[in-house]
Design a protein around this nucleic acid. Structure first.
Lengths: 113, 113
DNA sequence: TGTCTATTTTGCCAAATAGCCAAATAGATT
DNA sequence: AATCTATTTGGCTATTTGGCAAAATAGACA
């Protein structure tokens, strides 16, 4: 494989990885509605603010979000709302998978009985 | 947050996580063109077959791919091609981010000089 | 300048991940 | 049944991640 192709894959995987955590998905969802500051996000999520800040910096490093300072608060905003379109597909996959997992469990239960 | 909402996020994050590795992105790309068997995928990727097999099982568990046996080979196929549409957006984000990272580096270099 | 507030960074720990090699398994074939 | 081939699983190590608490920082404002 060409190094260039490989690097592209690595970079793309990094962006996807930034999205691959429930807390960060929630943050993205919140930002899709309104630009908000760290303290508001922290309130909504319930974790320690330092934890939330780390999640935010993961999103920022991936290039998915951006910041603006207003007074002494920092507001985060979605840089590429196109990722929202994708979430429908992911939600569909997740739903089907969840159903199948339940089926598998009940199937095993039957076998054991 | 409702437990139901939380669980949905966890499930969706799991699907995204399955996509968050360069090797698995490459596999998905290959499968978007043609259903192929493990040995072919292994050839294309260059890692140990056991490593590739593990990546495939991550994709399978997430519900993104499915398998069919033909003789004593196992063919993998994409279950939800809708994820391909998403890749354009990701590629865009990755490209912009890569450019910005380069800028940052050269900027630091200037500062140091 | 010093202080206040919002946010980020650091240090630490437990858990998860990716890779290889060796061993196990599942069907196909004799 | 014995063997062959394709694939998966288990064991190991090194690395990364997510969480909290404490310390550091950045800018606002007296």
């Amino acid at each position: 494989m060409k190094t260039e192709t490989k690097n592209k894959l690595i970079q793309q995987a990094a962006v996807i990885k930034a999205l691959s955590h429930p807390t960060r998905l929630l943050i993205v969802d919140m930002l899709s509605k309104k630009n908000i500051c760290v303290c508001e996000i922290t309130k909504a999520i319930g974790n320690d603010m330092s934890t939330v800040s780390k999640h935010l910096s993961v999103l920022k490093n991936s290039g998915l979000v951006d910041i603006t300072r207003k007074g002494n608060q920092i507001f985060y905003n979605l840089k590429c709302p196109c990722i929202l379109e994708f979430m429908d597909c992911i939600a569909k996959v997740a739903k089907v998978t969840a159903k199948e997992k339940i089926k598998q469990i009940s199937c095993c239960a039957r076998k054991r009985a």
